[in-house]
Nucleic acid binder design. Structure first.
Lengths: 219, 219
DNA sequence: CGCACACGTTGTACGTCGTACAGTTGTGGG
DNA sequence: CCCACAACTGTACGACGTACAACGTGTGCG
């Protein structure tokens, strides 16, 4: 594709990999493909990254670094918590193929540490002890990531996989179930196949999480 | 390893793959490895499964089928909902390496359909409309799965990866952060590295989810 | 009793992946 | 000018999923 202008840089590779993942899914992000995309030999990648896993570390860090944390402000703790979760969500939503990488990588780089620190701080304000704040905070961040990775758009890339046709097919399958046994599935079929990726889905479930924290705290 | 006694069966392969994933992680579950484990040629697998993806479908279905759904009983909807989420959690906790497979496969086989139907039914009882029940129900099941996949035990298999040493190292790293910037991370360091996989973590966050549903419903 | 045939399995081969190891260049500071 | 070192190339290996065709074998029918 593109011949490199002067030199290759770690950041350029990460940007390229991010674009590639957005366009064709995470499985398209391959050492060889990235090299080709930059007009370079596969082994050239290993100058900038120790191995593929550290490339993925870099991708996750870059993704988490794009979170626009709101100022520590003065609102209620629950409003601030929602704002942080929404900021996190907004950052990862454009990159559903990469979101899963962050699941086990939040605490490995500085941007994730800042995010986690803010979340823990608010949970402490809400009355949680250090251990419970750790447990709830860990889950909250993982849950936000899960909101994004379930997106069916992440599966569109596979050899021209037609996502729309797939969804139509799935909905038809649900509505063809035995009405006696699965009335709710049939009634909810359109929403079940399309809800992920829709604004409603994100707002109602972020709400659920914040309400859950309110209902779980000790004071 | 093991020579097959008489013949190979789809179920035997799935059981073998499950055990393999539990022992060495999902990345050890490979067509060739499975064949070798059963004293058979790799291509023999393709008689029982179309391709690797349908093998993974089978693994996910088998996992979801192991959920011991409580009887539709007569308690409050929130108690019943918790019971179902706990049943789901209990089924997938022994197999953290496989849990992630279920994320996008709940609605593809019968056991997942039954689980989803029950969840939707209870959400309708709680006052949600069909669309909202679909959105919340989808998220609830994904969230329970997320509780399990974050487990650090899933990363132990890689070439003799010493999970305990890894956790000690991570905790030391957290506690070595600048105290001025990351006080909460430092205070919660022990819990942050060990909370996943502990009973507290699961119960408090299942609680959070149920409380969240209560706080989000319309009536 | 024997034979055909489908079921289950084998053998070989191809293309892709990550990456080890050693060699080669281009460029900037002495 | 030159040379050291950062950046990159070339070749090779083993593992992966799997296409395709050939092979053995147990079972049911004549």
């Amino acid at each position: 594709m593109a011949k490199r202008s002067v030199r290759l840089s770690r950041d350029a590779i990460i940007d390229c990999a991010t674009a590639l993942a957005d366009a064709e899914g995470l499985e398209a992000v391959t050492i060889r493909r990235l090299a080709q995309e930059n007009g370079v030999t596969p082994m050239a990648m290993y100058w900038h990254f120790n191995d593929k896993d550290s490339l993925l570390d870099g991708l996750a860090e870059h993704l988490i670094a794009s979170v626009k944390l709101p100022e520590p402000g003065d609102g209620m703790w629950d409003e601030q918590l929602r704002a942080i979760l929404v900021a996190f969500l907004d950052a990862i939503r454009p990159h559903p193929a990469l979101a899963g990488l962050a699941l086990r990588r939040i605490l490995v780089a500085e941007p994730g540490l800042r995010l986690a620190e803010r979340v823990l701080d608010l949970l402490r304000q809400a009355g949680f002890g250090p251990e419970q704040a750790a447990e709830v905070g860990t889950f909250l961040m993982c849950a936000v990531i899960t909101l994004v990775v379930g997106d069916p758009m992440a599966a569109k890339a596979a050899v021209g996989g037609d996502a729309a046709a797939d969804m139509r097919h799935k909905q038809a399958m649900l509505q063809a179930l035995e009405p006696g046994r699965y009335p709710n599935l049939i009634a909810a079929a359109p929403a079940l196949v399309s809800c992920r990726g829709q604004d409603d889905y994100f707002t109602i479930n972020i709400d659920l999480l914040v309400q859950g924290v309110r209902g779980t705290r000790r004071n």
